[in-house]
Design a protein around this nucleic acid. Structure first.
Lengths: 221, 221, 221, 221
DNA sequence: GATGAATGAGGATTCATTCAT
DNA sequence: TATGAATGAATCCTCATTCAT
């Protein structure tokens, strides 16, 4: 809290931040080219141009790197896609909403390929590791919020299930999108939107009808 | 001499075949619990209760194990789901077709959890290793055949794309199915069917209409 | 000793002999292409088209194979080059003797490349393994006999030393001969002869003179 | 920062250099006692008193160790025997030249027994591995230069062949020298010199005469 | 005799992580 | 902070040899 610390502290922190950013970028590259499981901390350090020791000065282990990377991706995503999410409210036509969301998110994923690498955890279904869990949980939370908004009155279990499905379908579609280019990629984007729209549309009307019915039922005792 | 061989040969082979089956079963377990990439041949041998050397008497490396495992799964799948596939022809109502297929395939996947582990290749999108490729290619081929049958006259590129999508959606749904149990699992199965039906239904009518239009155009010159 | 044994015995032995020959031939091939140290018994068995177990029915270990191979080579060599050795007596002019011997032995080595592989033991000077020792000792014995014949009256130590040298020089030359072909190989053969002739010629005259001197000294007291 | 590097850098390098020297010395010992092919990196690490991982921090594999060892030997040899080579020019009487060279080189080989172990490649004639090749090529180059100097006007092929032979003869002699001690060793050194002198002497006069003849022929047309 | 399955120690090599400087 | 050397357990895989059939 002394003046000295106030001067040195930020400078150090600044340097530390640069190192961390550098390491995370390197990690992103390595994760993308090698896959998370097969990536080694030594390889990340090498890619970052620092020694292994330096890496461990900032991260206690490999998983921590992935977690931090995931967190930063979440933040960046919020900044990039936040307005899109905000602009989407239940009054938006579904087609438009899905269109905007998928466009934004696929654009983000294309710019940050590591996003996909992190989403695809180490294969074991059920057993999620912390970093993938964090990323997944975040996305799921957002999707759940959206689903809840679009399906008012739907039971929590249904909302969760629908959100899980939407996220899963999106990830599946994204994989195909990322593994193609040009016109074909665009075609996959289009189809992914169709999948989601067609799946959700009936749910929307179903719950709208049900809500009306409930209303009627309630009003006419 | 021929008698000798007839007696001894099969006996040897029998023991070997048992070992192979045992190793493959062990590998399936290890792949499921550890994930393919993180699985080690030593762990597989240990699980099978044999020495590492024994494993290498039958398989040259880890990939070969996955390949053989995949091949056997494909065969078993053919036997188990073959009639379902055969019974499905374009005259079948889509809902019924999808229902049967998804039921059969999810049942199979639930009985052979390693099937999912092998379908989920080592994280790196695009870079497919041989064993996952084989499995994936087989499934894709079947799906393509189905899609082609249901969308007669569709351009090859569309068929392929649709097949890719269906398979991807199925895999995504399967992951959710496998990670739930009981009633919730059933619910996911239902929703997975809905996803596929709703996505494909419009394509069917679209191509049917187009075919009719072509017919009309051709007939009235 | 019964009739049965007399019938079966030889037949069995004949079969065994064939197997042994087959294994030794395979071993020769493997030793030549892989080098003795790096050769594996499994590889030899595979090359011979038999199982590892069969190999161990005839040879207790890898070294025994090399020993037997060496012994057979010695026998074959005796048959092939024996007359050459026999024909060489001190009355033969050195040039002719060396010429004949080198020709015979290089011809033999070219026909049996494993001969060289076995002569070149596992690198460690001094530490000779049994099989190479046997081969080496045999050759050395023959060379010593020759040297002793050509240098009558030479002290044993000198004979041994000269023999060691001649054999060493021959082996060095042989390596060069074997690693060339056609005219160049012939040139190396010629030069190898020259090396030996020029080295030994002075020794011959030296000992002849010394012998004469001794004679004179003894006669004129 | 530069100060840091100037301070830290060399210190690190110093430690590393010491380790490398230590590892190379250990490797030399192991190669000598076990032979190159049969030597294991684990054994080398053990001999050096470090863990296997440490070895691999400095050398990517066994061959790299041999290569570096060979390189250092070449350098040491240059320093130790360089003046001897330099002092030898065609005007030197052959006997003296050979005497000096053999004395120097055998002295060096006796002090560095691994030199011989590395010269003796892995048994397979023709198939040279990089490390032995480097050493061999270096020696051959020097011998060729000498031969060319002593046999002016000799065709390149003859020079190369003669060099190959001299080197081979030297190696053969060296093996004998190394496997004896005391007076007997000296005797082998003497004989090795004799071999080389007697083999080369006639070549010298031959080419001298030929050169004179050419001169005469040219002058008296 | 012959087979081929079985062994387990040992080979090269990698890797997450720690530590002295 | 930063370095890079150090670790040692774990990786994949091989090999000489044995054993039940």
């Amino acid at each position: 809290m002394s003046v000295d610390q106030e001067k040195a502290g930020p400078r150090r922190q600044a340097r530390g931040e640069r190192r961390i950013a550098q390491l995370l970028e390197a990690a992103a590259n390595v994760f993308c080219t090698t896959g998370y499981t097969a990536s080694s901390t030594n390889a990340i350090a090498r890619e970052a141009g620092v020694s292994p020791g330096t890496l461990y000065q900032f991260f206690p282990n490999k998983e921590a790197i992935a977690i931090e990377l995931g967190d930063r991706l979440i933040h960046q995503m919020r900044e990039t896609t936040g307005e899109a999410l905000a602009a989407v409210d239940p009054s938006t036509p579904l087609e438009e909403a899905i269109g905007t969301l998928v466009d934004r998110f696929t654009a983000f994923s294309c710019q940050h390929p590591v996003f996909f690498a992190l989403m695809h955890g180490p294969d074991i279904p059920g057993r999620l590791t912390e970093e993938h869990d964090a990323l997944h949980a975040h996305l799921l939370g957002q999707v759940e919020a959206l689903v809840a908004a679009f399906l008012p009155g739907a039971p929590a279990a249904d909302v969760t299930r629908t959100a899980h499905l939407c996220l899963g379908l999106y990830k599946a579609g994204l994989e195909l999108v990322l593994s193609h280019e040009g016109a074909e990629r665009d075609a996959y984007v289009r189809e992914l939107k169709n999948v989601l729209i067609r799946y959700l549309e009936p749910l929307l009307t179903e719950y709208r009808d049900r809500a009306t019915a409930d209303l009627t039922t309630t009003r006419t005792p």
